[in-house]
Design a protein around this nucleic acid. Structure first.
Lengths: 221, 221
DNA sequence: GCCTTTCGCTACGCGTCGTAGCGTAACTGT
DNA sequence: ACAGTTACGCTACGACGCGTAGCGAAAGGC
């Protein structure tokens, strides 16, 4: 909730959620109602037919209140769906292969939810011409999930499944983690939303085998 | 050009480009002018601010003519950018690694063009709620590029870099090719448009090494 | 009680959408 | 040459979403 406040529209950057400010405080209830209404509207209407006025009506809020907090549709939707991606987790399943398969399965399930897939692709499309929006997406959605890769690698190294390289010790393993992250997220998104084919157990096993084979080969050579 | 005709809006499906039809034929010049105007508008305005009326004006065509041929913005843009993706090719560079690096480099260069990236993401987002549109995208853009994977694999097998499996001989290698296609296309798109980081030589080498390591491990195990 | 900020509400100008109607142009068959 | 058919340019239209302005009322700090 605190993190959400600093993503708002005007609100002089210095004094955000502080309660020492004079005047009527912003309604936190309206916040949650608006974001929930946005997700509901995304499910029913999708991105293109979603309108700010409709969201305001669903949330029981005036349209002007929406524009006081968010600059536009893109910013609103980013905040509305960001919480969905934070639900991803990495339970320890005993092996790197099982961990990867588990997180891929979760991500695929998330991408089956209509509000997640229509919103994700739409805001990314919008961000190709809007650098601040791209930064917002990365900060609120994408980069937060890199924790899964970092933790998965650390576990695999602790198990002895992956070697500890000089980069790891010097803290410069970011490039390798970024690559793995792009491979996993990109491949699953492309399979589910572009190719439009099912991300089922059979495919997940094949993909995981390919990825782990690559990581293993990189470790040896 | 013939393939383009069958992607049009009304035009009784049976009698498409045939010249034996009575009445005034559709202007082919208008076709190319409209598609070129669409690409120009995408460069200047991006997807969200592109309007049908603007495209019509740029093309020197009445707005009604646009709607006589395309059902909406999405269908028009798919046709307008499809030709860009057909420019991808796979020159023989002597090794599988060099071939992969070459095609990744080309794809990354294509994704730097504003009309390509804004259009691709936007129509995919739209297609999450429009199954016919998704089919159109696959037929006009995505599936056409799988030829690059098929040809790359065939060359690698001819060089002895990859083994010829039973699936290849029975013609059932589609699943493996589909996986490699999703990995390459998805990863590059995610790197360029979501992570927003450069697809430079260093990254391409790392990614290619990972992928080829995975393919090699799958061959041995 | 005074000040400040937010809230709901109404109303507005603007632009885009997608379609209808009309007269005209282009091409095919007899 | 003539009728039949189809595409074209043009205009006009109702509907809708956008983003903002202005107002009085509500809710907090000092």
């Amino acid at each position: 909730m605190v993190a959400v406040m600093c993503r708002r529209h005007p609100l002089p950057p210095g004094a955000a959620g502080r309660s020492g400010r004079p005047g009527r405080p912003r309604s936190a209830a309206a916040d949650t109602a608006i974001l929930e209404a946005t997700r509901a509207a995304l499910v029913e209407l999708g991105w293109s037919k979603l309108s700010m006025g409709d969201v305001a009506t669903r949330a029981g809020v005036a349209k002007t209140t929406l524009y006081r907090r968010w600059a536009g549709k893109s910013e609103l939707v980013v905040d509305a769906v960001a919480v969905l991606f934070d639900e991803l987790e990495l339970p320890d399943r005993g092996s790197l292969a099982a961990d990867v398969e588990g997180v891929v399965r979760q991500f695929a399930a998330l991408l089956e939810r209509p509000e997640a897939k229509t919103a994700l692709m739409a805001v990314v499309a919008e961000s190709t011409r809007d650098e601040p929006l791209r930064e917002r997406i990365r900060a609120s959605i994408v980069d937060r999930q890199k924790r899964l890769v970092v933790e998965g690698r650390a576990r695999a190294q602790a198990r002895g499944e992956l070697p500890v390289t000089a980069d790891d010790r010097s803290g410069a393993a970011g490039a390798a983690d970024d690559l793995v992250f792009d491979v996993i997220a990109g491949t699953v998104v492309h399979r589910a939303l572009v190719s439009g084919q099912p991300v089922d157990g059979e495919w997940i096993r094949r993909f995981t085998a390919l990825l782990l084979g690559g990581l293993g080969a990189a470790a040896h050579g």
